[in-house]
């Protein structure tokens, strides 16, 4: 394998992981746009998606696709409960940004702890969705899981575009993003939007978690790195722009893959965090324009 195809190989796998980061990043934007809240428990949705699917598949023999569907439903239900019992009371009290962040971070920790109790601390994984040898394009190998990730991401992106562009709820969410007070005056129930946003965001996170788990392992504590990566994706894309966040995710995935090539695998999370700090300190408005 020559140098160039090696680099292409790395870039391709970086793009795959980037799709995952992008989906998580979109999750941040959806909630942020509806409410101005940054949900630091986003990583827990990702972790739970993979974990619940794995539990159903291995312990109860539920087929993969059904396990995945049930897992997404469970994560959405958990997100709605969180929104009801934690976020809503604080939101009604007009709690500060910081209190909201701390509360959602605490939710992340509680969910991690609960998962640790139920599932133990052993890393787990899922089988790949299609068990065939990777496709070869020239010297570059593309695994079927990567194709699944890319295809699912594409479907989700188009689905979201249709949702925001053509459905009542989607349009209402966009209105909230532009101006919450005005949206409320137009008769849009901002509080309902908040719950929907949590549900949608959780679904995105859970799907990302299920898609990515076959390529690596999952454990009770994988959430936070994903949460950070998704947040970086959202920042790079200009916070509050769902599609910008997806591109941001791709950019981060590639950057991380590059850093691993240059510095070795120990620097994977270090590279992501460095990208985060560079963006925050130098260009907090992201690549694609001004943050709201």
């Amino acid at each position: 394998m020559n140098e160039i195809s090696y680099i292409i190989q790395v870039l391709v796998s970086g793009l795959g992981l980037g799709c995952i980061y992008g989906l998580i990043g979109i999750g941040y934007c959806v909630i942020y746009n509806a409410s101005g809240i940054v949900n630091f428990a986003q990583g827990a949705f990702v972790m739970l998606g993979g974990m619940i699917t794995q539990l159903l598949l291995w312990n109860h023999g539920v087929p993969l696709l059904l396990s995945g569907a049930i897992a997404v439903a469970c994560v959405v239900a958990i997100a709605i409960v969180i929104e009801r019992i934690v976020v809503r009371p604080l939101w009604d009290r007009n709690a500060s940004t910081f209190v909201m962040i701390l509360a959602t971070l605490a939710v992340q920790i509680v969910l991690e702890g609960a998962t640790l109790l139920i599932a133990g601390d052993q890393p787990k994984t899922l089988p790949v969705f299609t068990d065939l040898p990777p496709l070869r394009i020239g010297t570059v190998a593309i695994s079927y899981q990567l194709i699944w990730i890319a295809a699912a991401s594409a479907v989700i992106i188009f689905g979201l575009a249709a949702f925001f562009g053509h459905t009542r709820v989607g349009k209402a969410m966009r209105a909230c993003a532009i101006n919450r007070e005005a949206a409320a005056l137009q008769g849009i129930r901002v509080s309902t939007m908040l719950m929907m946003a949590f549900a949608l965001s959780a679904a995105l996170g859970a799907i990302a978690g299920i898609l990515v788990t076959p390529t690596q392992v999952t454990a009770f504590n994988v959430g936070l790195p994903f949460a950070i990566a998704g947040f970086i994706a959202a920042i790079v894309g200009g916070f509050g722009r769902p599609f910008g966040a997806f591109l941001g995710g791709l950019a981060l995935g590639v950057t991380q893959a590059g850093a691993v090539v240059v510095f070795g695998s120990g620097f994977k999370s270090g590279a992501a965090l460095a990208v985060l700090l560079i963006f925050l300190f130098v260009r907090p408005q992201g690549i694609l324009g001004t943050a709201k």
Partner: peptide, 18 residues
């Protein structure tokens, strides 16, 4: 706000990584 929160969280995580 959340930018400061995330930046400081990142500083903590970087220290851990190092």
């Amino acid at each position: 706000g959340h930018y400061l929160a995330m930046a400081t969280l990142a500083i903590g995580l970087i220290a851990y990584e190092v």
